[in-house]
Simulated assay, not measured.
Amino acid sequence: MSAAPAGPPAPTPFLTSSPSPSPYAAPGGQGDRLRAPVGLAIALAVLFSLVIGITAYAVYADWNMRTLMERLLADPATVTDAELDRGQRLTGLVGTIQGNALIVTGIVFIVWFHRVRTNAEVFAPGADKLSLGWAIGAWFVPFANLWLPYRIAVTTWGSSTPLGADGGYRRFPLTLVNLWWGVFVLSRVLGWFGGMSYGRAQSPDAARDAATTMLVGDALDIVAAILAVLFVRRLTAMQHARAAQGPAAAAV
C-alpha cells in the first residue's frame, strides 16, 4: 500500500530475524525511550487468524439459522423441533466463543496500539494533542469510540513514517488505515444490531432478518480482521524502520 521508497532499501522487515542490535535500544537520546511492538504484532497475527477461523464458523451458523427460518416460513412441516434446537444452540455457542476470542484479541490490540502511540510521541513529540492515555481510553468512550481511535491511528501513522535519504518523509498513503477502520466500524454496528434483533425476534421472519444481518456483520468481521493484520504489520514495520534511523531521526 506504500509508494516506492525515496532512499536506500528499508531495514530488515519486522518479522524476520537480524543479527544487528535492536533499533529500539539506541544508546542515548530519544531512541532509548522506544519500545519494540514486534512481539505484540506477532501475537496479534496469531490471534486474528484464530478470530478469522471462528468467525468463518459463525458465518456458517448464521447461514444455517437463516436457512431454517426460510424453510419454516415456506413450510413449517419441513422443520423439526430438533433442527431448530440445534440451530439455536449452534448460534449461541459460536457467538460465545467468538465473543471471548474478540475480547482477548482486543486487549492485546489495545496494548499494541498504546505502544505504537507511545513510540510515535518519541518520533514526533506533540504531533497528537491527545495524551497517551487516550490510546487506551478512546476505545471505551461511547460514540466517541467510533472516531477517536481512528484519529489516533492516523496521527500515529504519520508520526511513524520513516525518513528518506534526503531527510524528507517517505510516502505511506492512509488507504489501509481508512479501509480497516471503515470496515471495522461497519461490522461492529451490524453485529450489534443483528445480535440485538435476534434476541428480540418473536417470529420466523424477524429471526431470519436478524440472522441475515449477523451473517453480513460476521463476513465483514473477517475482512476487518484481515485488514487489521495488514495495518498492524505495516505500522510496526514503519516504526521499526524509523527507529533504525537512530535518535536523530526520532527527534525530527
Rank of each mutant, 00 (worst) to 15 (best):
L84C: 04
V104G: 06
T12G: 03
H240Q: 09
V141Y: 07
L186F: 11
F184C: 00
G28P: 13
R115H: 05
S203W: 15
T118Y: 14
G95D: 10
A120T: 02
D209S: 12
T236S: 12
R188G: 01
G167N: 07
A45S: 12
T213C: 01
N100M: 13
P149E: 00
A251S: 05
T118M: 11
I97V: 14
V46Q: 02
D128G: 07
T91A: 04
A210N: 10
A135L: 10
V104K: 03
A58I: 07
V183A: 08
V183H: 01
T16E: 00
S18P: 00
I222Y: 08
W112N: 00
M65L: 08
I103M: 08
A144R: 03
E83H: 03
S20I: 07
G29A: 04
A241F: 10
L176H: 13
A144L: 10
H240D: 05
P11N: 00
T12A: 02
G137T: 09
A210E: 07
R66P: 00
A144Y: 14
T118V: 08
L146Q: 00
G126D: 09
L102W: 08
A249V: 06
F184T: 05
L190D: 11
Q98E: 12
T105A: 12
P5N: 06
G199F: 15
I107D: 05
W134S: 06
G28M: 12
A219M: 14
R200A: 15
G126E: 07
W192E: 11
S187W: 03
L34Q: 01
H240R: 09
S160R: 10
Y24P: 13
L235S: 09
A249Y: 12
V122I: 12
P173E: 06
G53L: 12
T91Y: 12
A201N: 03
V94N: 04
V108M: 00
V183K: 01
M214E: 04
I107R: 07
